[in-house]
Design a protein around this nucleic acid. Structure first.
Lengths: 205, 205
DNA sequence: TAGATTGTTAATCGATTAACAATC
DNA sequence: TAGATTGTTAATCGATTAACAATC
């Protein structure tokens, strides 16, 4: 009997828990509780316990959770114990900032290739990466079995890029282009659009 | 009698609708329907109609919605018809990319000031902005009545920056630092952390 | 032991969907 | 008119919360 699928909304909270717990660990905090973690995150303690209970029993009555142990477990659940290779498409302003960002490696990700379509950029170096020709992308992604990609191209080319990524076997796309992507079942897309986030706040002003 | 508060989950979808509709308009599409829009976004048509119905009747039976009219209405609802002034804190790699990003102005936002704490950066110019001393921030924000800010500083200083922003009257913070912020009621925070988004996908790989 | 906190159950709450009369 | 699509109601579905026995 297949275990029931875990709701996506629960999965989406786990990286937030992991981030907070990792910070606790770095601050020397050895033990936490659902109440403590919940207060930090603005989430109810019941929800945290319920979320975690889908994956096992990680705590101890009366005591709470070992921070290091929970970090370990969440890392396993999210499969970020090792390092995922990620392709970056688009070496413009934003792509360059992403290529230079130091925060990926300690949290389970590593940019392995950077692509652009502009002949003036191909061959140039940014953040330790030589920019490759986007036409080579399908071949290189297949060869390196890359399953994650970040898209930092103009909105007008994002869907075409996504189509080629999917063709090349990519299963997860982090899309920085301000446009919705259509992808087949089995492929996931996450969106980062600062304007959308800002607009989510102006309603309340 | 106060009208009942609109659930935040509905507000959070409106910018997505607006973005898709704006794109339709730019592609010359004059009319859409809840079915058409829903298919583009992977959302049910019923949900789109229900969401919009909280704010008025914007469509016509048998026909659908005028794209331009709906863009107008959503812009009003989200209060992004004019332009909001936004402060940017942190002029590092990411802050610089944000300062240079051209995509804010046509969607209701304008960066008016950029701050950093590093004496070597203060006074330098990036993307048309002269970097100001972060110590001047409270005074300048108050003077200019700025209510929105983007935080692109290291995680370790993000909470302190947020505290000062709140003190200075900021009501909405777009936080790029990979850490949860604690803010008083009445202040909103939105988070952008690429690693969180990537980790939300690796579970499924 | 007494106090604290877990994991889990049942109750509550809220969001989504299905369905359809109204009507363009 | 016939076909299409809205806005809305009621039903369904799913997520959150409250409560508590178990137990460290």
């Amino acid at each position: 009997m297949a275990s029931p699928a875990i709701p996506d909304i629960i999965i989406s909270r786990l990286p937030i828990y992991l981030r907070a717990l990792t910070r606790m660990a770095s601050e020397g905090q050895a033990i936490t509780s659902s109440k403590d973690l919940g207060e930090r995150l603005g989430i109810s303690s019941a929800q945290i316990r319920k979320d975690l209970s889908h994956f096992g029993e990680f705590g101890k009555q009366g005591t709470g959770y070992q921070v290091a142990f929970l970090v370990e477990k969440l890392g396993q659940i999210l499969k970020v114990k090792g390092e995922w290779e990620v392709a970056l498409v688009g070496a413009g302003q934003l792509g360059t900032a992403l290529a230079r960002y130091q925060g990926f490696s300690h949290r389970g990700f590593h940019i392995s290739v950077v692509f652009d379509i502009d002949p003036a950029k191909i061959g140039q170096w940014i953040g330790g990466y030589q920019i490759l020709d986007q036409n080579e992308m399908p071949r290189i992604l297949r060869e390196q079995r890359i399953r994650l990609a970040m898209v930092a191209v103009p909105a007008g080319s994002a869907q075409a890029v996504a189509d080629r990524l999917v063709e090349a076997g990519v299963k997860g796309i982090l899309n920085y282009a301000p446009i919705n992507l259509t992808v087949p079942n089995g492929v996931r897309v996450q969106y980062i659009d600062p304007v959308v986030h800002l607009q989510r706040m102006t309603y309340y002003l």
